[in-house]
Nucleic acid binder design. Structure first.
Lengths: 219, 219
DNA sequence: TTTAAAACATGATAAAAATCATGTTTATTG
DNA sequence: CAATAAACATGATTTTTATCATGTTTTAAA
């Protein structure tokens, strides 16, 4: 994963002992989507790009990170896998802080701090994914997806299909990021296709699979 | 800001002493954009919606948060102001943890942990803003904005106007979330308007104000 | 340096979505 | 309950943007 070249030692402002940096060539990946998370990185010198590729139409560049910042804090998410990739935009010095070292210096972390960190990283993961969806999915696709996630979020009525929510069309539109009329049209279309049923304000899911296929069709 | 009703006490899993929750009615704001940050909140019971209004075309719903989660961790960002609003989707019990209490239970936090938390919150703020931009700005507007932020990120050549970057058109497109051809067209148009100059790969900013006006026209 | 490939620009067309307009249904309130 | 307002649906039109096609320029490689 990481290839050592020109190991050099630095002492970042937030850390007492010295850490060793590795030199990454321009364009080299620091970590890639689905890699197993083993620690976190600190950009000592250079510039990094965070992006998401995973099966979408095109690569989505999520943000640019300058030196002095951490990347890959997903690490805190209990060592699962990365949901994004990071690569250098120029030759860079990157410190790696492995999980063991991290936790050794976090011994005093209370359950409270841990809970907050855990959530912050989960939030970032969530919001980063959202950027990609917004940028790359159509209103139809996003609407299908929002319906399914609202079902999870709100839960269902006793019938097991009617979403227990009370969002207005314009609130759905504000979630999807479209005009209210577009949501109306898309929902009418879903209804016509018998994927959902609309009774007054209530939305009932009739064909979860079709909605899900549409929602994930460009991923 | 917060109106007390039915104060009740809970002991969240991550906290030893008891905390007091307040009852918020459905649709009530927990905090609003530009409010001064004085602590953070924990959803003991209920559901919350995070959105961003600030001068954009329409309200952008950023995410839905269920009970058991923190909201308003922007607090950690050195007590500035909220960049989003939070309101209840149903009657909810919300705990408030003020800054003093927070820090009292964080005494042991090292500079390292603090640095990470600081950055995580900054990242969230950044990415949340990005969702709103993606959802509500046109390709033209987003391109103008990306040019200006790349200028900040990369810095400029000696002339003080040429962006010191090496992104290809398709990388700009992947940032903006559009087709490569669209970026080409927009850049050609900016060039024709004499807002920028394109010399080989180099982009020179000629009229920062016009670009900025366009970039922020829907905000 | 010549050649091939990649990156870029631009026209034509199609598709997606916003906007405008209007009628209908559903809620709210006096 | 009637009156009014808000929410919703839907048609027509326009705008924005993607896609397809093709020519040009730049870059990299033989």
């Amino acid at each position: 994963m990481r290839k050592a070249t020109n190991k050099l030692h630095v002492k970042p402002p937030w850390f007492n002992p010295e850490l060793s940096c590795l030199l990454y060539k321009k364009g080299q990946f620091i970590f890639s989507e689905n890699n197993r998370v083993e620690g976190l990185f600190w950009i000592c010198k250079g510039k990094v790009l965070i992006s998401k590729t995973g099966g979408l139409k095109r690569e989505q560049i999520i943000r640019f990170v300058n030196e002095g910042n951490f990347i890959g804090c997903h690490f805190l998410l209990h060592s699962t896998t990365y949901s994004v990739s990071a690569k250098t935009l120029e030759d860079s010095h990157i410190c790696f802080i492995d999980g063991y070292t991290f936790f050794k210096f976090q011994e005093h972390l209370t359950g409270f701090s841990m809970a907050i960190m855990y959530q912050l990283t989960a939030d970032i993961k969530d919001v980063e994914l959202n950027i990609t969806k917004m940028a790359q999915k159509s209103v139809r696709e996003r609407t299908a997806e929002v319906l399914l996630s609202l079902e999870t979020f709100y839960g269902m009525k006793e019938d097991g299909n009617t979403i227990n929510m009370s969002l207005k069309r314009n609130e759905i539109a504000n979630t999807v990021g479209s005009a209210t009329e577009s949501v109306s049209r898309v929902l009418s279309d879903f209804k016509e296709k018998k994927w959902i049923d609309i009774d007054a304000k209530e939305i009932k899911i009739l064909n979860r699979k079709q909605l899900s296929d549409l929602a994930h069709s460009s991923m």
